[in-house]
């Protein structure tokens, strides 16, 4: 569950604003504690290329299972946690500008993908040190499953935070329960009675009482999903059931692909997987200490 496919205007404002604030803070920290000076200049094309790779793979289907992979663990292994956070922001922002994920959830999505990259990096590096280079593929597979399970749980946590009735109603994210059809001309000369209009005012009070009674019944039917004071809430239990049923299929596919790719790269260029993309031989060249020539 690499990124949240929740549209704009579903999550309460306080939640996605908090996501943006946390993401901006994370990016600031990444820029401060990540590579600086010449090393930072070296990382610009690297972060660009890896972010572009993640974007391209997200648009590449694995034939014939029609699933788009994410490569977030691979990107994390190559970039490490700080540069991974920057890459996560770039990927999420670009995707949102292509309609893939909402603009308001960019902050939360950045946190999710940055978490995936950092966790993936830590688990793959730790596993490779513990079990050796030869077992990089199974290590990557297990690390991917664990990472995705963790971020899926984070996603359920986000929906649980949003699911509280107070949150949705107070911020106006979701409250369509007043939806009805009325004829605007029913009180005038052209009272044609279309779409439920045309009723006279004497009966309005009765109608309102009946409407309230219907609402109460509907509220009871919805059980905990509807709160009298706070409007309809998201059904977290049902959402978690769907995500934890469908999610493992995605985790498995992603794990197999990540294991195959990292296994292949570990065979042809082991330093990339074991030491990251910025190993000694790939650090800034001589003459770039001051920038340019």
């Amino acid at each position: 569950m690499s990124h949240i496919h929740i549209p704009d205007g579903v999550l309460p404002v306080w939640l996605w604003l908090a996501g943006w604030i946390a993401a901006v803070t994370l990016i600031g920290l990444a820029a401060r504690f990540g590579p600086r000076g010449a090393a930072a200049r070296r990382t610009v094309p690297l972060v660009g290329a890896v972010s572009a790779l993640v974007l391209v793979t997200m648009s590449t289907e694995i034939v014939p299972i029609a699933y788009h992979i994410n490569l977030t663990v691979v990107a994390g292994v190559l970039l490490g946690p700080w540069l991974g956070a920057i890459s996560a922001f770039i990927v999420v922002l670009t995707l949102s500008l292509l309609g893939h994920g909402g603009i308001t959830v960019v902050g939360l999505n950045t946190l999710m993908i940055a978490t995936e990259m950092a966790l993936g990096w830590a688990l793959v590096r730790g596993g490779a040190r513990l079990l050796g280079r030869a077992r990089i593929a199974p290590v990557a597979a297990v690390a991917t499953v664990l990472t995705l399970a963790m971020t899926t749980t984070l996603l359920v946590g986000v929906v649980a935070l949003a699911g509280a009735g107070a949150a949705t109603r107070d911020t106006g994210a979701l409250d369509p329960e007043t939806l009805e059809f009325r004829n605007p001309f029913s009180d005038g000369v052209i009272g044609i009675g279309l779409l439920g209009g045309g009723h006279d005012h004497e009966h309005e009070a009765e109608d309102d009482d009946a409407h309230d009674a219907e609402h109460d019944e509907a509220d009871e039917d919805h059980g905990h999903a509807v709160d009298d004071d706070h409007g309809p809430a998201l059904d977290v239990g049902r959402f978690a059931a769907v995500v934890y049923t469908l999610g493992p299929i995605g985790w498995l596919i992603e794990a197999l692909v990540t294991a195959a790719i990292l296994g292949y790269v570990a065979r042809v260029r082991p330093a990339l997987v074991l030491d990251g993309a910025l190993t000694a031989e790939h650090r800034p060249r001589y003459g770039d200490e001051q920038g340019g020539h």
């Binding site: 660009g48 290329a49 572009a52 648009s59 890459s87 770039i90």
Partner: peptide, 20 residues
Amino acid sequence: TPTIVGDALLMTYRSLFILA
């Protein structure tokens, strides 16, 4: 945004078409 983020954003755009 910090320089590294803004520049990487533009490099991503350039690399995206080459990699696609």
